[in-house]
Simulated scan of single mutants.
Amino acid sequence: MPRVPRPAAFSAAALLTLGLTACAGNSSSEEDSGPGDWSTVTIEHALGATTIDAEPERVATVNWANHEVPLALGVVPVGMAAANFGDDDGDGVLPWVEERLEELDAETPVLFDETDGIDFEAVADTRPDVILAAYSGLTQEDYDTLSEIAPVVAYPETAWATPWREMIGLNSKALGMADEGEKLVSDLEGEIDEAVAAHPGIENSSAMFLTHVDTTDLSEVSFYTAHDTRTRFFEDLGLETPESVANASADTEEFSLTRSAERADSFDDVDIIVTYGGDEIVEALESDPLLSQMPAVENSAIVSLPGEEPLGTAANPTPLSISWVLDDYLSLLAEAAEKQ
């Protein structure tokens, strides 16, 4: 799961040296690519505007899941962020990414450890021509620092809130593969529609995604807003955003909010609750005198995802995880919908 990055200590002089080295080692131009093969691409985003003058040959990605776009399109990055959530075998690569690398007969790219923020020096060492971060939490300082290394594609509006379609669109455009990106989106939409059609029981049900529940303190309820990509994925799956969640999201750009449990009755329009954890989470919710009054809790219409495993991670949709998780996730939602 994405963590908000903290700028790493990295001197301007060292960065400039690395940036110049990267440029010198990977000089490319429209002439290199052949006349007419590349048209300059400019991408506007929340942190500025990025111009890519030549076809990228060395692609690096930072923050969560951006590497899945080039991989889905057959391009292996020279470096990408190591998975820091849902990594079941501890190798820094999620299973759907491992499967794609095997399909491409490719070795694992350099993995950037982002536990303490972006490792700018490691990114520079891969000598990228472009850095993809359309789904990210980059600060302006992060962006400015990375831009000394290579052109950077940041998120379009709000940190950690880029929908999967837009992530594909922006990152594929930066690669000069906008048409291929559109086809990838279309193929995934078709796959989703087919899978949803096989689970008609969830149609028109409303769903709310609680953030990590603290069973030792249920005095507050934290939930993902309508801006978060997990919540937006509900709509792809035929579910509705409850009016209570939509209204709470209207006056904020935050991807999560917290409410007192005393206001739990405001979520009476929630049919299904999705959250992270195991049986202990469900038991805690059902035994709480306030939260147990929520219809979804009262009906045990709760999907409890294993938070530290790939299944829970994939509830946040990404280009490669959608196909991997779709059937399992829909089955769990359908089971919960039957309890309404």
Rank of each mutant, 00 (worst) to 15 (best):
T231F: 05
E286Q: 15
E240Y: 02
A248R: 13
T231K: 00
R230P: 01
S222E: 04
E240S: 12
A284S: 13
E254S: 13
T241L: 14
A246I: 10
F255E: 10
R230W: 03
F223T: 02
D271W: 01
L285C: 06
I272Y: 04
F233L: 11
E254H: 10
D265M: 06
G277D: 04
T252I: 08
T275R: 05
S266F: 10
V282P: 01
G278R: 08
D271E: 12
D228F: 02
N247K: 12
A248C: 12
A264V: 12
A264H: 09
V245P: 09
G238V: 01
T225P: 00
E240T: 10
D265V: 06
I272V: 14
S244H: 11
L285E: 03
P242N: 09
F255G: 04
A284G: 06
I281V: 15
R230V: 07
T275A: 00
V282Y: 06
G238K: 03
E286N: 11
A261T: 11
A226H: 05
T258S: 15
I281T: 10
L237G: 04
L237C: 12
V274E: 09
D279E: 15
A248W: 03
L285T: 11
E254W: 00
V282W: 07
A264N: 07
D265C: 08
Y224G: 05
T231C: 13
E280S: 15
D265F: 10
L285G: 08
F223P: 07
F234M: 09
T225M: 00
G278I: 07
G278A: 13
D271I: 10
D228S: 04
E235P: 11
F223K: 06
S260G: 05
